[in-house]
């Protein structure tokens, strides 16, 4: 079921205008009159047997992990999803990629570029419309040379394409790898390395190249900076900034609120399986512009505000 979005926006919001439960940053654009990505009332639960019950008497129960979550990403901006580790943020990334476990129960709607998506259409957007930048080099196959992995396979339209068509496509892909490597300062020899031979900085750029292979519009970055020193982390985020400035959207999933405030345009606070507040970075200048008590507590817990405890992290 694919239908056009009914709510048409004016291209730019002014001032403190709040809609769809969020306020906007300076660079938030509504290109084409809609959000690049809009998640509405997303709930994800898992059917499983009660873990504590005896083997034969265990009943199937549904465990809610994400409930009634709404978030939007505009073209040209970085939205940081900030939440504690292990709170289900990766599950949010998975559901935007349309990667669901077989026992997942999912409700809600996801719109991409003004079109409501089905699990199938999300699957067909993977890589080419929406790309994932994973956390670490563990997400590369340890037994395959890096160049080959960045190149990937691409979408094969029609199982048995003509061999010359396939050849041309594969040449185009290796040219694209070279272009990306050049752009991100990776020497061509890096393509011949195995993942365990990459340095932290190289690995980060290689993963980014993987994501950019098929010219995505939206990047979902799942904790892309842990393990990198500050210098590398800032450079990683600069690359995301550049991508956003060219009209793409970035959803930056992180537990590091300081980093988020430094690079993002807007911040969404993730707690207990939902987004409790989604607002501009500027709103974090003062606790008075934050609405949710937890977001206020988060503000007080920031180092420059004196680490005041009582923040229920």
């Amino acid at each position: 079921m694919v239908r056009e979005e009914q709510s048409i926006h004016s291209p730019v919001h002014t001032g403190e205008a709040v809609h769809h439960g969020h306020s906007h940053g300076a660079s938030s654009q509504h290109a084409g009159g809609h959000h690049l990505l809009q998640v509405e009332h997303l709930s994800i639960g898992f059917r499983m047997y009660e873990p504590d019950a005896a083997f034969f008497s265990a009943q199937q129960r549904s465990y809610q992990v994400i409930s009634d979550l709404s978030i939007s990403v505009h073209a040209g901006e970085i939205v940081a999803v900030v939440g504690a580790s292990g709170s289900g943020k990766t599950l949010l990334a998975d559901s935007i990629m349309g990667l669901f476990e077989p026992n997942a129960e999912v409700t809600g709607s996801i719109w991409f570029d003004g079109v409501e998506q089905t699990p199938e259409s999300l699957a067909s957007l993977r890589g080419s419309g929406i790309s994932l930048v994973p956390q670490s080099v563990d997400h590369l196959n340890p037994l395959l040379r890096v160049g080959k992995q960045v190149e990937g396979v691409g979408r094969t339209r029609g199982r048995r394409a003509e061999s010359d068509v396939r050849e041309a496509a594969s040449e185009a892909r290796s040219a694209r790898v070279q272009e990306l490597f050049e752009r991100y300062g990776l020497s061509p020899e890096v393509a011949k390395l195995y993942p365990h031979e990459l340095s932290g900085g190289m690995a980060r750029r290689v993963l980014l190249c993987c994501a950019l292979m098929d010219n995505p519009r939206l990047i979902v970055a799942d904790e892309p900076t842990p393990g990198l020193d500050l210098d590398l982390a800032v450079r990683a985020l600069d690359d995301f900034r550049a991508f956003a400035n060219e009209g793409g959207g970035v959803m930056l999933i992180t537990h590091d609120i300081e980093l988020a405030l430094r690079v993002a345009d807007r911040v969404a606070v993730f707690k207990d399986g939902t987004i409790i507040e989604e607002t501009s970075v500027e709103a974090f200048n003062s606790p008075d512009t934050l609405k949710h008590p937890f977001a206020k507590a988060l503000w007080h817990a920031l180092p420059e505000h004196g680490f005041r405890s009582g923040a229920a992290c």
Binding site: M97, R126, L140, N141, G152, D214
Partner: peptide
């Protein structure tokens, strides 16, 4: 594994 998850996220 993570790398199959990533490959799936890339459209495999």
């Amino acid at each position: 594994s993570d790398y199959i998850r990533f490959a799936r996220a890339r459209g495999y």
